[in-house]
Computed example of a mutant assay.
Amino acid sequence: MRSDHVRLFQTLPHSCGYFVGRTAQNLVIDPAAPQLDRLYGAALDHGFRRAGGHLYFPHCPNCHACTPCRIDVARFKPDRSQRRCLKRNADITVSERMAGYNSERHVLYSRYLRARHPGGGMDEAEASDFRRFLTAPWSPTVFLEMHLNGQLVGVAVTDVCNTGVSAVYTFYDPDEQDRGLGTFAILQQVELARRRGIPWVYLGFWIDGHPKMDYKKRFQPLQVRTTEGWTDLRR
């Protein structure tokens, strides 16, 4: 995937979602390109990520903190904490479902955002917000639904390409936060990749020293993408 094969656009500066007082910019693959579905796997390998119908990569002039990262599926083994998470959630049924909007998912999504991002502008999500952020007509998306006693308690929005699975977003019942459903979702995405013979699970971006990103280091071996390509991240 080279810039002479597909157009890249740069966004205007906007507030950084990770560092107060900083601005951010992204490179975005032309959202009108007719071959986005075919470009997606290569875009993941180049460090891009999907949000709604856009494939983007952080491109901030004065900051390079956001580092693409991915789990090596063949070499990954859950650590003690992750094994405890699997045991704690052994009563949850996980199933692959067609991506898309329904009222049950929307109610759970809205509850999650109100608990996780109160007053942040995301906590009053309409049906159109759900569709626009989590799905795209061209994306190979499945929803990994988590049910407890017949009740939907979590959804892992997961894009499945031939060479990589991308963990796009996970939302879950805020009353069940002690279960570690975010970690549980990633472990299920690793298992999905393993079942399908897909070598990588992409976790978006890792920021060294950022408390919101620290959990990603626990999925070893974790690879990060530098200017020299992908390499193992050492603890």
Rank of each mutant, 00 (worst) to 15 (best):
T11G: 06
H59K: 09
G154Y: 00
Q25L: 02
L36E: 07
I29N: 03
F133I: 07
R225L: 11
S103W: 12
R196W: 09
R22T: 04
D45R: 15
I186K: 00
M1E: 09
L44F: 08
P221I: 00
C16D: 13
I29W: 04
L36A: 11
I71S: 06
T163M: 09
G154H: 02
D178H: 13
Q220F: 05
E124K: 15
V28R: 03
G204Y: 04
D45I: 08
Y101Q: 09
A127E: 14
S128G: 13
H46V: 05
G100P: 06
N62P: 01
H5F: 15
A42I: 06
S81T: 15
M122V: 08
R49P: 00
V73I: 07
E104Q: 14
G182Q: 01
P13R: 09
A193Q: 08
G121Y: 11
E124C: 14
Y101H: 14
P68R: 10
Q223F: 05
Y215E: 01
S139H: 10
D123V: 08
F76W: 07
A51E: 06
Y40F: 14
R111T: 02
H210D: 00
C66L: 10
A127G: 06
L187N: 03
Y40H: 11
M122W: 12
P211A: 05
R80E: 10
A65N: 08
Q188V: 00
D79L: 08
